[in-house]
Design a protein around this nucleic acid. Structure first.
Lengths: 253, 253
DNA sequence: GAAGGTCTTACCACTGTGTGGAAGGATGGC
DNA sequence: GCCATCCTTCCACACAGTGGTAAGACCTTC
């Protein structure tokens, strides 16, 4: 969250405003002015001035407990979700996937060292309401591996370096060598597979969506309970996911 | 979109950046630099500088066709949706509503002269994928009336003034007197009802969620086809919605 | 392939916006 | 009551942000 050397993009106030937004967006509870200022590394009056504008424009809300994200933020997300070529390409494919497999189909995109849920279609429609869109998940678990496997060499090294200490859901540490070996496997198979890595009792299969310009920053995934995704079904699902990923890629204008 | 007299909040660059974001968010296709600048009422170099920062920070994306909303925007929305007290209060109530009525339950919030979809739980779960969260809908149709009915007098007048020319789905104009009469009815009943106003063949019932500090800026709604919501079922649904609205209101901390 | 258009990038001198220290209120705990 | 903490307001300075102008891409059109 703190960046020591900002290259001075010559738009200080704007950069700072975005810093503040990021601070508020990544906090799970209301923040007092003082906290915002400290976390963003700004003098209090400066933070206050910026927050004032953001509040007036609906980007943050405020009550006795402090500042929190504002409703205005949902417009932007809606705009992104409806106009993104990637998403428009993926939507029908995800529906087919969910219908064909009976599992929950999701689309992820890589952002920095994590991935974001961009769309999700649940197969056996549960009434359980969940809207994980916009949620940030780790890059070294589940569908994240399908993305990691596509990173260029130098980026991969950088990623692995900052990964030390991260673990699986069961608490076991991620071994660098094992991880590398797994990525190699994913590259040759064309899909990734995970059982209980992020959530115990859940399993998933994922494939990278090749970007038009090479590389892959998006991935398709199906998830279900370990019982829904028995090991012997994995190769078949893998093939289906590869097809889906290609279909999405081909549909992007 | 154009505001002649900005009261000079002493944060010009930030305000302008938000103006630009709003321009981009409310366009349904990519905008070229020139268009952004014109629509935001800014000199081209200024717009470019701001867009540069927004792009670097993931708030807008860019390709040969111009600028479009960026992925970064989804984080904010996710943060809002997960931290908003209103939403956390509403979620379980919406689920109950959907389960009890078999209809689609939604939560709206009023923003300026429109309302936004904040949450939706579909009753008879269709595989049809739709994510209307963040969508802006008119205030004079459907659940919008439940919100309009709660406006203070002076605001209502202002609203009606800028409403002239707006119509129903069938093309008929909105008569001011009829509308006022309907609002009065809504106020005494405690719920609103609409048949085919916004979407032909669809019907809905909605109730305002009283805010802790008085007034109502949110509303709960159930929607279905006209057949799902027969006229004789409306009073019963209305009662159910009033209860739901109160339940939400009571759950807000 | 030259000419004429439109859109984008780059430059840079001026000035008014954004800055942040310091002081004054507000609130709350003990 | 007092002290501690957080929020707000004020204001003089300086540098960040501005936007005119001009050069550079990149299209069409003839």
């Amino acid at each position: 969250m703190s960046d020591p050397a900002k290259p001075a993009t010559s738009m200080r106030s704007l950069e700072r405003a975005i810093d503040i937004l990021e601070v508020i967006d990544s906090s799970h509870h209301a923040l007092r002015l003082t906290d915002v200022a400290r976390q963003a590394g700004l003098p209090i009056p400066t933070a206050q001035r910026i927050l004032g504008v953001l509040e007036a424009r609906g980007r943050v809300e405020r009550d006795a407990n402090g500042y929190r994200p504002g409703v205005g933020l949902v417009f932007g997300a809606h705009a992104y979700l409806t106009t993104s070529p990637l998403l428009n390409a993926a939507r029908p494919v995800l529906q087919d996937l969910a219908a064909a497999t009976g599992l929950t189909a999701s689309l992820f995109k890589r952002i920095d060292w994590s991935r974001v849920v961009l769309a999700r279609v649940s197969g056996a429609a549960p009434l359980r309401y969940e809207l994980p869109i916009g949620e940030r998940l780790p890059l070294h678990l589940g569908a994240g591996k399908a993305l990691t496997a596509q990173m260029p060499e130098d980026e991969l090294v950088e990623f692995l370096d900052q990964l030390t200490g991260h673990t699986y859901a069961d608490g076991s540490a991620v071994s660098r060598d094992d991880f590398m070996a797994e990525l190699a496997g994913i590259r040759s198979l064309g899909y990734s597979h995970a059982r209980g890595e992020r959530e115990p009792g859940m399993a998933s299969v994922a494939a990278p969506v090749p970007a038009p310009g090479g590389g892959a920053t998006a991935a398709v995934q199906v998830t279900g309970t370990s019982a829904d995704v028995p090991p012997d079904r994995v190769p078949e699902l893998g093939a289906e996911l590869r097809r889906a990923a290609l279909a999405i890629s081909r549909r992007i204008p």
